[in-house]
Design a protein around this nucleic acid. Structure first.
Length: 698
RNA sequence: GGACCUGUAGCUCAAAGGUUAGAGCGUUCGCUUCACAUGCGAAAGGUUAGAGGUUCGAAUCCUCUCAGGUCCACCA
């Protein structure tokens, strides 16, 4: 269909052909057993909220390069597209839409709200997936997956049930981050930190014997929940306090003075008040010392009955009242201004309360060990290797994983509570048929709690590659990921995969460079800094964008994105086009003229150069050095092939025509993983009708 | 606070201990030469952040200083 095009046009316009070429490829992307050797890529499913950003573009261009390169080496490519429901992020976006319409999710109710999200998903899914098509990705579109597919939900529920059966799941009352406005617990990831000018209050606590000690706090209202005071074991200046007992002002509760390494001896007075109910660190310390937890603030941010006379006040009002009382008692030593980071909800910007809540946890000791072994045994390789360090560090300090969320959008947990007895539950996918062991009745109500979205993401590899009678695709050869989800996603896939299938879910993890702005700052949509890859595609075309990204990429360091290499890519495409134009226009002419079987010095030179270039590209593909290999290919093509070899033909040298044919064809194949669309188009001009990626590299 | 990365031409990057530190973009000048003006030919542009050390030899290895950045954790 495009065969004669090349003779007619002196300019190559990528925008004219790329879509058509992609559509031509789609049926061939469908997985089919040809050689029997698979090359399996695990895709990182984008959020349904998301539009493509440079990180996605980079990540998937790299993978697509590998897919095409491996295909040329004779592998059958396995790469299936998918998208992620992305729990809280999606809920957030849809809530913003509702706000524009003058309503909110509470007005709508849970069912209607979820229905809205589904509508939203149907509408946006294709927009997102089309962006992958624009990048030219080698994806099998017949096997699309979504993390809220019926089958996928089933996997998530079953995984939870198996974990529970093996004793790795428990329910516990613990302090969690809670947004009073959104009325849900939040993971640490869903917090932002806002620099705030506040005060550090130095408060005197009487000692039981006699005298006083002083603690420093930014939140005097939480002192009512104190259960102990702590000092650092190396804090000599406070040594004489060890073993003594202090009295909590106002309430006069006795507080033991304990020793814990977690206390910073240099902050404030070096004495930390332990308030397990309203601080995660304090909770951790309290666990080590078997201390109770006393909650004084409720989920709405108001003082509860444990706060006695302050009950019913908001935490801010309580702060004022308590300070007033302390002043009356002459227990305030001093007040210093302090600039500190206050956690706020990343959606509504409300200040987060840490409050105890009953949540579901996954025990991490056994599982984190699996994740540790994967890397230490080298069964799973992390590249570049320097990322092993934070990976191991995270596993070493890991806490049990809170896997429940009180949001609405997500996979509902297969948990049933007895309507009469609040703490009795059964775990099963269907409504339990047993009676409640407490009230002997059978009134089971399914929980509202949903899974942490990462709990579901952790199961992605085998839900997409292992299930549905497609075991043969598991494990994957490679997954590429941004560094910030090494722990959140990669580590969790590793232990989940091993736990449920006995096999690690992939062999190699490539932590790709972060795409920064030209100024070296992180690209951020909300701050309005960054470049939209789709804009670049509509300006320069997909091959040009790919060229621009690969040109700038190094495996080792972050990439400050510059637009000019994308333009350079466009020029390169034109150069390729015209080199082949030259070839096709002069084909018959040269064939008649050169019948020699001997090789000229130009022939020898170009053959050698082609060989070393191919070798270089093959070697660099293993270490993800695409920037270097593209530069090598670029120089080969422009300087060796065009400037020297093609020019030599103009001067009617004694070149060998067969070498000419061979070099031009092999070069096209060599160029394919770098600039797929144009090479396919020229491939048609060679009279071939199949995809070029079914050619042989050698 | 912890870990990691980076400072080389105006900009983005190469140069994996060894000639005169190289490309692209940008700048300046000359060419419509029959594949390509998105091209061809040429030129200007550098104390490799700074200091010290190792070495016959350092942009490269080591130490310190300065500057920029990323991720993780988070302080009461």
């Amino acid at each position: 269909m495009f065969k004669r095009l090349i003779k007619e046009k002196t300019r190559y316009n990528p925008l004219e052909y790329e879509n058509k070429i992609y559509n031509f490829w789609i049926p061939y992307f469908k997985y089919k057993k040809r050689s029997g050797k698979n090359f399996t890529i695990l895709i990182a499913p984008p959020n349904i909220t998301g539009s493509l950003h440079m990180g996605h573009a980079l990540e998937n261009i790299i993978l697509d390069f590998l897919a095409r390169y491996k295909s040329l080496l004779g592998y059958d490519v396995v790469w299936f597209p998918g998208i992620d429901h992305a729990g809280i992020a999606t809920q957030n976006v849809v809530e913003k839409e509702l706000k524009k319409q003058g309503t909110n999710r509470f007005e709508l109710g849970r069912e209607k709200f979820i229905e809205k999200i589904w509508q939203w998903k149907e509408k946006n899914e294709n927009i997102i997936l089309d962006q992958f098509k624009k990048l030219g990705l080698y994806l099998d579109w017949s096997r699309k997956r979504f993390t809220m597919d019926k089958k996928y939900v089933e996997w998530v529920e079953k995984a939870f049930i198996v974990y529970h059966k093996k004793g790795l799941v428990y329910r516990d009352l613990r302090p969690v981050n809670f947004c009073p406005k959104c009325k849900t617990s939040l993971s640490d990831l869903e917090l932002e930190y806002k620099q705030t000018e506040g005060f550090l209050y130095y408060i005197k606590y009487p000692l039981k014997s006699n005298g006083f000690l002083t603690i420093a706090t930014t939140r005097p209202e939480t002192i009512l929940g104190d259960v102990a005071l702590a000092i650092n074991p190396k804090d000599y200046k406070n040594f004489d306090l060890i073993g003594k007992t202090a009295l909590l002002p106002i309430l006069n509760r006795e507080l033991p003075i304990i020793v814990d390494a977690r206390v910073d001896p240099d902050f404030g007075t070096g004495i930390l008040k332990i308030t397990p109910a309203h601080s995660l660190v304090d909770y951790e310390i309290s666990q080590r010392h078997h201390l109770p937890m006393i909650s004084v603030i409720n989920e709405e941010g108001f003082m509860n009955k444990e706060a006695r006379e302050f009950e019913g006040l908001s935490y801010l009002q309580a702060r004022e009242e308590i300070l007033k009382r302390l002043k009356e008692l002459d227990l305030i030593e001093k007040i210093e201004p302090l600039i500190h980071q206050v956690p706020i909800c990343d959606r509504c910007k409300t200040e987060i309360q840490v409050i105890p809540s009953k949540e579901w946890f996954l025990k991490m000791d056994y599982l984190s060990n699996l994740a540790y072994k994967a890397i230490s045994s080298k069964e799973v390789e992390i590249f570049p290797p320097r990322f092993k360090k934070p990976y191991f560090g995270w596993l070493k300090n890991i806490r049990d994983w809170c896997i429940s969320r009180k949001i609405w959008w997500g996979q509902t947990m297969p948990v049933w509570y007895c309507k009469n007895c609040s703490d009795v539950y059964e775990i099963s996918r269907k409504k339990p048929s047993k009676i409640c062991k407490n009230c002997k009745k059978k009134i089971w109500i399914k929980t509202d709690e949903v899974f942490d979205t990462w709990f579901s993401s952790a199961l992605w590899p085998f839900a997409i590659l292992y299930s549905h009678k497609e075991k043969k695709f598991y494990p994957a050869d490679i997954v590429a990921s941004a560094r910030e989800i090494l722990q959140l996603w990669i580590a969790r896939m590793i232990f989940s995969g091993k736990f449920f299938t006995k096999k690690y879910p992939f062999k190699k993890v490539f932590i790709h460079p972060t795409v920064l702005t030209k100024e070296g700052k992180r690209m951020s949509k909300s701050l309005g800094i960054g470049v939209d890859p789709l804009d670049l595609i509509s300006k320069y075309g997909s091959d040009s964008l790919r060229f621009g990204i690969l040109w700038q990429m190094s495996a080792r360091q972050d990439l400050k994105f510059d637009e000019s290499p994308v333009y350079q890519g466009q020029k390169f495409l034109n150069k390729i086009w015209n080199a082949y134009r030259f070839y096709f226009l002069n084909l018959n002419n040269f064939k008649k003229k050169n019948k020699s079987d001997k090789l000229s010095s130009f022939d020898k030179r170009i053959l050698k150069s082609l060989r070393t270039t191919k070798k270089f590209v093959a070697k660099k593909a293993e270490s993800f050095e695409f920037g270097l290999s593209l530069k090598k290919v670029y120089k080969f093509f422009w300087n060796e092939l065009c400037d020297i070899y093609l020019e030599s033909w103009k001067k009617s040298s004694k070149n060998n025509f067969k070498v000419f044919e061979r070099v031009m064809f092999e070069t096209l194949v060599l160029l394919h993983p770098f600039v797929p669309h144009i090479t396919q188009l020229i491939y048609f001009s060679f009279g071939r009708k199949k995809p070029i990626f079914f050619e042989k590299w050698d």
